[in-house]
């Protein structure tokens, strides 16, 4: 506002002062109102609702709600639930690591090495899998990984021993990494593309080999992107139960599936489901807060 019309008296001579004040007061309401309402209705309110539910031990649809308490949170510390949380974290952290290891070279190559006119095409090509349903992709992996599937046919063709990956942890990592790699690549690409190449020249000028430049300049400079991509994949994989369930076999219970079961499974223990949700929301919020703090310090 002030930038475009540095002298409001000149720009709007006819408007009396009180109207301008009113306008100033109304402006944030008008600008932020719609999205604020949206956030309030679909984010803040549901979260508060879940918070309240989580504080009613054994809250069940159809039961008269009991007194408030933290029983639901104590329940989470049962080994059976801790194990599920641990497994989810294992899946999520592993997938994040794989996405990072596979995604960084790709993003690096597209952003810094590939001919610039091919970049968009390469990116589109890379995110193409996102256009299909993640379920379809999981089923495709079943076809590839099943004992008589494509992978083992290929291995057999080259005289290599067949692999039994389906319904075990490797399949979960393969499927989830495949699903979330494009997100990682996109975010890393955005970060690498902004990388000031003069910094690489400066490093080289000061005696750094390509490898040294990479570790001492490129990686630290793109750390916000790495953190953002990692966090996005981490959160997304924590919330994904379809892929683990389809590919992970009999021992693929994840936190999100557990929550689902509490809400729509046979027990319908909404209280416990809500408390696990709250723990998940809390964990994710803390990671985001850390990211913001960390990212801020690194902002140049």
């Amino acid at each position: 506002m002030t930038l475009t019309s540095p002298n409001p008296n000149l720009a709007e001579p006819a408007i009396p002062g009180w109207q301008r004040t009113l306008r100033k007061l109304l402006q944030p309401v008008i600008l932020l109102g719609p999205s604020g309402l949206w956030l309030l209705l679909l984010l803040v309110f549901p979260t508060l609702l879940i918070l309240e539910l989580s504080l009613i031990p054994g809250a069940r649809l159809g039961n008269p709600p009991g007194p408030y308490g933290i029983g639901n949170y104590i329940e989470i510390f049962k080994p059976v639930y801790l194990q599920v949380i641990w497994r989810s974290l294992y899946f999520a952290l592993g997938t994040t690591l794989f996405c990072l290891l596979l995604g960084f070279p790709v993003a690096y190559w597209i952003a810094l090495k590939a001919p610039s006119r091919w970049r968009n095409l390469l990116l589109v090509g890379f995110i193409l899998p996102l256009w299909t349903s993640s379920l379809l992709r999981a089923y495709a992996w079943i076809t590839i990984l099943r004992p008589s599937g494509l992978l083992n046919s290929l291995l057999g063709f080259f005289g290599l021993p067949g692999q039994e990956w389906l319904n075990r942890t490797p399949a979960v990592f393969i499927g989830m990494t495949y699903s979330y790699l494009p997100y990682m690549v996109l975010i890393l690409y955005a970060s690498l593309e902004k990388l000031d190449r003069r910094l690489l020249e400066a490093a080289s000028d000061l005696g750094a080999t390509q490898q040294q430049s990479f570790w001492r300049v490129t990686v630290p400079q793109t750390m916000p992107g790495i953190a953002a991509g990692g966090l996005l994949v981490l959160i997304a994989t924590l919330g994904d139960f379809a892929v683990p369930e389809l590919l992970g076999g009999a021992s693929s219970m994840t936190v999100s599936r557990l929550i689902y079961n509490q809400f729509l499974g046979a027990t319908r223990n909404w209280g416990l489901g809500s408390s696990i949700s709250m723990i998940l929301i809390l964990g994710v919020s803390i990671s985001i807060a850390l990211l913001l703090k960390y990212g801020d310090r690194d902002a140049i």
């Binding site: 309240e52 539910l53 009613i56 809250a59 649809l61 159809g62 039961n63 008269p64 709600p65």
Partner: peptide, 8 residues
Amino acid sequence: ARALLNNA
């Protein structure tokens, strides 16, 4: 939440 549970 309470209303939700009671609504049953």
